[in-house]
């Protein structure tokens, strides 16, 4: 019990952030028309590409003689970028079509 309380007080900032973000995520998505489910999923897909930040840190910290870390880090950066760029571009392509029709 004491350990758990200690863990909570040590990580209170993260626990705050975690709890609030869960609530924000729930609130933001409620009442979405079914038409937008696919673009929304695709947009959220692009946002979790933020994992690229971790890949950049891994890559940037790899020792220059640690070829395994270099190779894996490089791969992670490519995959993360694919997720981000592909995600946003695909979402934009889907939404472009709604936009054009709305104006006509």
């Amino acid at each position: 019990m004491e350990n758990i309380m200690l863990f909570i007080s040590e990580n209170i900032e993260f626990i705050f952030l975690l709890t609030l973000m869960i609530i924000v995520g729930f609130e933001v998505i409620s009442n979405v028309p079914a038409v937008l489910h696919t673009p929304l999923m695709s947009g959220a897909n692009a946002i979790h590409g933020v994992v690229i930040v971790g890949a950049i840190i891994v890559m940037g910290q790899a020792e220059s003689d640690d070829y395994l870390a270099l190779t894996l880090g490089f791969l992670a950066v490519i995959l993360g970028t694919l997720n981000v760029v592909g995600g946003f571009v695909v979402t934009d392509r889907m939404l472009e079509m709604f936009k054009r029709k709305k104006k006509n």
Binding site: L18, I23, F26, I29, A44, I47, H48, V50, V53
Partner: peptide, 29 residues
């Protein structure tokens, strides 16, 4: 959620918020 764990690992706030946001919103969706 996996991205959010990366955020914990590096004390990285943007990974954490982005990851949790998608984890939670994705579940609702």
């Amino acid at each position: 959620i996996a991205a959010a764990f990366g955020g914990f690992l590096y004390d990285n706030s943007v990974m954490l918020t982005g990851g949790i946001l998608v984890g939670s919103a994705g579940t609702v969706l």
